[in-house]
Design a protein around this nucleic acid. Structure first.
Length: 316
DNA sequence: AGCTTAACCTGAGAGC
DNA sequence: TGCTCTCAGGTTAAGC
C-alpha cells in the first residue's frame, strides 16, 4: 500500500512523539508479523523490553528505529516495513484493539505519558524485525549519513536495508548513480523505477504519476532515455512525492492513515493512477479528448494516456 | 543478467 | 444470501 510519501508521513508522525520513549513491554499478537526475525516472537518481545527509542529513520519504504544499547546486547535497529496494508498507530492504552492488531508496544514517552505504538496489518505482507548494522557508503565508497535522520547523523544502516538504493527525497540522493543504473538497461523504465535497488520509494502509484508528467510510456527501455529525459523524470518523481507529502499522502480508503489514524488527501492530485476510462487532464486542457487506459503490468496494472504517453516506435 | 511466476495474506466489490 | 472471481499502494525466492 504505502509508497515513500505515505511512509514518510508515518516516520515524521512517530518522530514527533517516540524519540526518547521507553519500551516497557512488547506483545506480538501474530507471529507472522515478525517472520523475518529468525529467533522468533518471544525473543522479539524480550529483546525490546526496557530499551529506549533514540531515533527513527527511513530509506525508501523502509523505516527503522535506533534503539538504546541493552546492558549485554548490541544496539539493534528495529526495522519496519508496512508492506501493502501496514499501519503504525499511536493510541492510548485503553483504546480498543484494532481488528488486525499484530504487535503492541507499551511506551512511556519522554514527557511521562503512557501510550501504545501499535502495528496493524490486514494482509501481513509487512512486518518488523531486529537487525544489526552495516556501514553506509555512497558510490565513491565514502561514509555517508542516513536519509531523514534527525540529530544523530548515523553513518550506518540496518543490514537488511543495505541493498535499497537512496530515495529521491534523500539529501544525499545521487542523480548520476541513478543514471548509471538505467543507462545500459533494455528493461522498461517503469520496471526500473519499481526496482528498489535502482531507486527506492517509488511504487505503482508514483511511477505512473511521474511517467504521466513527463509523457513517457512505461515500456520505454532504460537505455533509450537521454540525459535530459532522465533528469526530467527524476524531477517529476521528486515533485509528485513532495506534493503528495504536503497533502499527507494518498489514501483511497482508511487502509492508509498516519499515526493518528487520519487519511491523506493527495488522491485528488492524481492524474494517472486509477483513472481508467476518464479523460487525460492534460489532453483535455489542449482541447483533445483522450481516454486513460489500464494495462496489465507485471501482475498488476499500469495507467497511461494513449495520446501523450505513446508506445515507443522501437517496440512492436 | 533478466524474465516470469508464485508465494506470502485479507477483504471489498462485481457478477451470477 | 452465497458462491466464485478479480483486484489491491510490496517484496522475495525460485526456475528457466
Amino acid at each position: 500500500m504505502p509508497e515513500l510519501p505515505e511512509v514518510e508521513v508515518v516516520r515524521s508522525g512517530l518522530a514527533a512523539h517516540i524519540i526518547g520513549a521507553q519500551i516497557n513491554a512488547v506483545q506480538v499478537h501474530d507471529a507472522r508479523s515478525v517472520r523475518r526475525f529468525a529467533p522468533g516472537a518471544l525473543a522479539f518481545e524480550n529483546l525490546l523490553a526496557g530499551r529506549t527509542v533514540r531515533d527513527i529513520s527511513r530509506r525508501g519504504k523502509y523505516l527503522w528505529l535506533t534503539l538504546s544499547p541493552d546492558s549485554d546486547r548490541q544496539d539493534d535497529a528495529l526495522v519496519v516495513h508496512l508492506g501493502m496494508s501496514g499501519q503504525v498507530l499511536l493510541k492510548e492504552p485503553e483504546f480498543p484493539h484494532e481488528k488486525h492488531l499484530k504487535i503492541r508496544f507499551e511506551l512511556t514517552f519522554s514527557n511521562g505519558e503512557e501510550y501504545e505504538m501499535r502495528f496493524v496489518d490486514q494482509r501481513i505482507f509487512g512486518g518488523m524485525f531486529l537487525d544489526s548494522w552495516v556501514a553506509m557508503t555512497n558510490r565513491a565508497g565514502e561514509l555517508t549519513a542516513a536519509a531523514s535522520r534527525s540529530e544523530l547523523g548515523e553513518s550506518r544502516i540496518p543490514a537488511s536495508v543495505a541493498h535499497i538504493a537512496r530515495d529521491p527525497l534523500d539529501a544525499n540522493f545521487e542523480y548520476e548513480t541513478f543514471r548509471a543504473a538505467i543507462r545500459n538497461k533494455r528493461t522498461g523504465i517503469k520496471k526500473l523505477l519499481l526496482d528498489q535497488s535502482v531507486i527506492s520509494g517509488v511504487g505503482n502509484i508514483y511511477a505512473d504519476e511521474a511517467l504521466w508528467r513527463v509523457k513517457m510510456h512505461y515500456a520505454k527501455p532504460g537505455n533509450t532515455l537521454t540525459n535530459p529525459q532522465t533528469k526530467e523524470l527524476v524531477t517529476a518523481i521528486q515533485d509528485v512525492m513532495r506534493e503528495s507529502l504536503a497533502q499527507g499522502g494518498t489514501s483511497f480508503d482508511d487502509l492508509y492513515v498516519n499515526v493518528n489514524g487520519e487519511s491523506g488527501y493527495f488522491e485528488r492530485g492524481l492524474n494517472a493512477y486509477g483513472r481508467e476510462g476518464k479523460p487525460c487532464k492534460r489532453c483535455e486542457v489542449e482541447g483533445k479528448l483522450s481516454i486513460m487506459v489500464r494495462e496489465p503490468f507485471g501482475g498488476r496494472s499500469s495507467y497511461r494516456c494513449p495520446r501523450c504517453q505513446r508506445k515507443p516506435r522501437s517496440l512492436t
